[in-house]
Design a protein around this nucleic acid. Structure first.
Lengths: 183, 183
DNA sequence: TGCTCCATGTAACACGTTACATGATTGC
DNA sequence: GCAATCATGTAACGTGTTACATGGAGCA
């Protein structure tokens, strides 16, 4: 499991409340690791019980229930331990491929529209990532190790989406060529 | 959920026992959709209860407990329905990226060895896929729509592994260049 | 007043993993 | 006889999703 470790990393970058973390997991971090607020609250409770993080009421005079979490030494130690632990290579796992197999065995079922829909979703993400790259990672900003690694992470997302865009075109070509038995 | 639909597809290709399915999910199909035998048995029981598949004792005179499953009309209908259902684009979700972020925020922790380990795992899969491509998808065998789709699916795996191989080299370059502050 | 957003939580369920159990068959 | 493989299953747990609940703050 590594939601806990993703949260530790995130909290090291900036001490936050569960709510803030949930919003960040819907944006930047969440581009690469998604989690719902329920998962996050549950995990924060566990991490506090484990002594990895500590919370205090937000400095708003008790106006809200907001709690700020920060990483303790034990949490940092755990993150370091986990980061060097061997992990399995991620499996490719995609519903569209199952659908393609179903198409192959049952005969043409008309997957083209769904693949085109995926294509536009991936293209939209590509545009978003490219905008972030232009805004935050111009060459003059890549002066620190941290910035270069964050740029690498963004490029991972770019490559992933580019891969799916290319794949979508290839898949559409195969489906369409096959509709025309001469191909 | 789509393990049920992956199993339906698999059973349409060939009626099988749970055990056989589990082995196939460790090989060809499992390259793209992994499942343990416990998941498969549980799911087969549900699918039979739902009337999507039927089972009969294997024709071995009751020597073994083996049961052969086959897809019923309702199962085929369900697979067709599901295959055209809109689905979300798959998220990128990789532990190594969380580890990289941890490295970025905590300072160099020595991820290079782990990335090299992943690199060899992906290279091994690449070799395996290329062997399958040479064996099963020579141009003279790509005469049917089904074969062309199956080839596309294999190429998806090839592209995925190639992507991770390229990524690993890039990540190693970033980590090593950053170890040398002049870079 | 009523709406939206902030902020946290409970409950139930679906999916996936790991450990353990059972008994038959096959091969040495 | 012993080990490996075939073949199916139970149980417990961890993770992820969905629905629902609660109450305050800010704004029109």
């Amino acid at each position: 499991m590594s939601l806990a470790h993703a949260l530790l990393t995130s909290l090291l970058e900036k001490s936050s409340s569960g709510y803030d973390l949930a919003r960040r997991f819907d944006k930047s971090i969440g581009f690469f690791w998604h989690a719902t607020h329920q998962q996050i609250y549950r995990e924060l409770a566990r991490m506090e019980a484990a002594g990895w993080i500590a919370s205090k009421a937000a400095p708003d005079g008790g106006k809200t229930r907001k709690r700020l979490y920060s990483v303790l030494a034990a949490g940092k130690k755990e993150l370091r331990r986990w980061a060097l632990e061997p992990s399995p290579a991620p499996d490719l796992r995609d519903e569209l491929i199952v659908r393609l197999r179903a198409d192959a065995v049952m005969g043409p079922i008309g997957l083209e529209a769904e693949i085109e829909r995926h294509l536009s979703m991936h293209e939209a993400k590509l545009l978003a990532y490219r905008a972030i790259e232009q805004r935050d990672f111009s060459p003059d900003k890549l002066t620190t190790r941290e910035a270069r690694i964050q740029h690498l992470i963004l490029r991972t997302g770019l490559g992933y989406e580019e891969g799916w865009v290319a794949w979508s075109h290839e898949a559409l070509a195969v489906l369409r060529e096959s509709d025309n038995p001469a191909g």
